[in-house]
Amino acid sequence: MTTTLLEKEKQTTHFSFTGKGSDYFAIEIVNFLLTVVTLGLYYPWAKAKSLQYLYRKTELAGTPFVFHGTGKEMFIGFIKGVGIFIVLYGMLFFGLLTETPFIMVLSYFAFLVAFLVLVPVALHGMMRYRTSRTSWRGIHMGYRGELSDMITTYLVGFFLTIFTLGVYGSWFVVKLRKQMIDNVRFGNVSLRYVGDGADLFLINLKGYFFSIFTLGIYFFWYVKNVLHFYVNNIVVLQEDGTYSRLQCQVSGWDMLKLTVGNIFIIVFTLGLGIPLTTTRTMSLIMNNTVMSGDFDADALVQTEEAYDSAVYESMTDMMDIGVV
């Protein structure tokens, strides 16, 4: 019996990234060209294409992920996002033009509140959209979170962070990750985020002071710690109660090499090389991440229904929240 247990503990399922910088570069060049020629209208299609490539080259247990999102879906989201921004900024702009102090303050306040609520709405939308459009071996992911929960979590966390002068920030981030990850389904498997705010707080505290003491060198180890905290606390839970954990083995030294290399690439190619930095980053993280524990790659069962709206995808994008 002991042997089987040991064997089970040792079982690892590998992630990998097989994309090539030159290929992704070519795709992004085409995207860029078409986006410029169409005065930006092609952007959603470009985004869809680039995600399709990155997903297709990301493998779990030797099988690639598939991104099912389409340019048309993203275009609708993009238009709605742009519309909301135009309305919001228009309100603010005309409010300020009236020069009536009351209306100026009111419109500014309304703008801030709308913006604040928009963030969790966009996060929720992005989670719904991204997960529903992701499949692996034909099994789709899904997001079961409630929008109201997301808004509550976000607003409460936001204001607590302000009232505690930022100290609560670490707990806020963890709450938000829990809200997002705990509601993800992958067929009949579900995810859990088990990180603790206090741990993140210590990582941040240590990172802040050590980075200063070491003139910034520690910063890469700090980023590594945060990455580990985000990834290694994700648990994949199967229906029978068995589970496995994600493990990221990227080191601080790796992080340093990646960052310095990326900066050189961007500077010396005048920004043209940004796609190369994307594939370098993906390679480093994916090729050094495994899932260890019980995971039966053959036992996933489709549980999602056919998917729907793509409203929020591009909105998050424009606000540049940059999750996952």
Binding site: D23, Y53, K57, P64, H140, A306, Y307
Partner: peptide, 21 residues
């Protein structure tokens, strides 16, 4: 079916899609 490498992936039909690799 785009971006294939050593592996060719094909998908077919409506949700839930069948696929071969």
């Amino acid at each position: 079916s785009e971006f294939n490498d050593a592996t060719t992936l094909l998908r077919y039909g409506k949700f839930p899609q069948q696929s071969i690799s």
